[in-house]
Simulated assay, not measured.
Amino acid sequence: MPAYRLLFALVLRRIDPERAHRLAFGLIRGVARVPGLRAAVRARLAPAHPDLRVRALGLEMPGPFGLAAGFDKNATGIAGLAMLGFDHVEVGTVTAHPQPGNPRPRLFRLTRDRALLNRMGFNNDGAAAVAPRLARRPPGVLVGVNIGKTKAVPDSEAIADYVASTRRLARHADYLVVNVSSPNTPGLRDLQATGRLRPLLTAVRDAAGPVPLLVKIAPDLADEDVDAVADLAVELGLDGVIATNTTIAREGLATPPEAVSALGAGGLSGAPLAERALQVLRRLYARVGDRVTLIGVGGVETAEDAWQRILAGATLVQGYSGFVYAGAAWPRAIHRGLAERLAASPYATLADAVGAGTRAEHADGNTGGSTSGNTSGKEAS
């Protein structure tokens, strides 16, 4: 990926982040529309790693690494993203009604921290427009659909709003995610309180039918609230929990505080989120074990990061900000590094590695240490 890093440093970082996203995503979609070119790119960037195959959420997946929600908000580029080697693609966040999102500028790079700050505000075309695109998605690509609350809908009607999206979208999804953790829709995170989350998830569960249902939580939850969500997931028989969304914390950044403050409100993603996201994941796994599928996301940049998520308890791993900083070859590097780490580990399969570090910690009576396991210590390249 050195060539991409040079391109980023010389060109892309000088372009408004949202415009750069549109240009890059447009190029990905354009390449994917040419069958021969799409096949050639896929052969180059998405070689099979049979040892990384995983079963999760009742689905057979070619590997554990997927693209997190936020990149393809409207399900317009699924084929192109699969072409690059993502094992699954989570689209959205989609709301029941179309909405433009927050005023621009609303997406910012913190390059010294390898991070992004966004206050996009669930800009999307709405469930009615996204549903037919999902219905036409290419076969063989696993797609999750992330749904959120329409900003204009009052809190008292939030459940009905989520249910409306579910009824339009669930039939076209391999799994469905209830997003109650974005910091960019006023009041949304209040829905993470179990008293409000229980009726919401129950209603969505009824509307989704047999489609696997997950909830995505914030890294800013207190530990006892993480435990409460974990217990609720088990109680309701949810299929999974995604840990975590972006953070409103700003501690420990290399970017000067005054520069960060000047950017305004929003959710921070990327490298600074990694440690807290990993802590939440470990806590969830210690609470639910294998009863609920966990997806680790937040600060995943390298194969080592992904491996640590697996050892901590994640069956699946996702990334987004790392894609911005590493480019199109990023999924290939993650897969190659994971295959190397699995081969060098004491685990026969990736499933055997899931949660092994957290289990070892608890067996040793240590709840705060590393889940390093037996790793090579190399970063993905």
Results as ranks from 00 to 15, higher is better:
186 P>N: 09
223 D>W: 11
183 P>F: 06
164 A>M: 11
158 A>P: 10
220 D>E: 10
196 R>C: 08
228 A>Y: 02
162 Y>R: 10
228 A>L: 09
154 P>Q: 13
172 H>W: 12
220 D>Q: 12
193 A>K: 08
169 L>M: 04
209 G>T: 04
214 L>E: 03
182 S>V: 02
226 V>D: 03
184 N>S: 07
226 V>M: 09
173 A>C: 00
167 R>T: 04
177 V>Y: 01
225 D>Y: 04
168 R>P: 05
219 P>W: 14
170 A>Y: 07
197 L>C: 00
222 A>V: 03
195 G>C: 02
198 R>M: 09
212 P>N: 08
220 D>T: 05
224 E>Q: 11
175 Y>I: 07
163 V>H: 10
184 N>K: 05
185 T>A: 08
153 V>G: 13
158 A>M: 06
221 L>M: 13
228 A>R: 15
183 P>H: 10
186 P>G: 10
156 S>K: 13
217 I>S: 05
185 T>Y: 01
175 Y>Q: 01
216 K>F: 08
193 A>P: 02
191 L>W: 13
227 D>K: 13
165 S>Q: 12
202 T>S: 14
226 V>N: 01
175 Y>F: 15
217 I>F: 10
203 A>C: 07
199 P>M: 06
193 A>M: 05
171 R>Y: 07
206 D>M: 00
223 D>C: 10
213 L>K: 00
213 L>I: 06
203 A>G: 04
226 V>S: 05
209 G>M: 02
216 K>P: 09
163 V>E: 05
179 N>S: 09
201 L>M: 04
165 S>Y: 14
166 T>S: 09
171 R>W: 10
188 L>W: 06
212 P>C: 05
166 T>P: 08
214 L>T: 02
228 A>G: 09
198 R>D: 11
223 D>Y: 12
206 D>L: 06
223 D>S: 14
155 D>K: 15
195 G>Y: 01
182 S>I: 09
171 R>K: 15
187 G>A: 05
206 D>K: 14
205 R>S: 05
158 A>N: 11
163 V>M: 04
176 L>S: 04
162 Y>E: 10
198 R>T: 13
192 Q>F: 01
167 R>P: 12
198 R>G: 13
201 L>N: 01
195 G>R: 12
200 L>F: 10
201 L>T: 13
186 P>V: 07
218 A>T: 15
180 V>M: 08
187 G>Q: 03
153 V>T: 15
196 R>N: 07
216 K>E: 00
175 Y>K: 07
159 I>N: 11
207 A>M: 02
190 D>I: 10
211 V>A: 12
208 A>S: 06
227 D>H: 15
198 R>W: 01
167 R>M: 03
218 A>L: 06
180 V>R: 11
162 Y>T: 11
223 D>L: 14
183 P>N: 05
226 V>R: 03
190 D>M: 06
164 A>W: 02
217 I>N: 06
213 L>A: 02
186 P>Y: 03
203 A>F: 11
212 P>R: 05
165 S>K: 13
194 T>S: 11
180 V>L: 06
175 Y>C: 00
224 E>I: 05
160 A>L: 03
193 A>H: 14
223 D>A: 15
217 I>W: 12
173 A>M: 03
163 V>R: 13
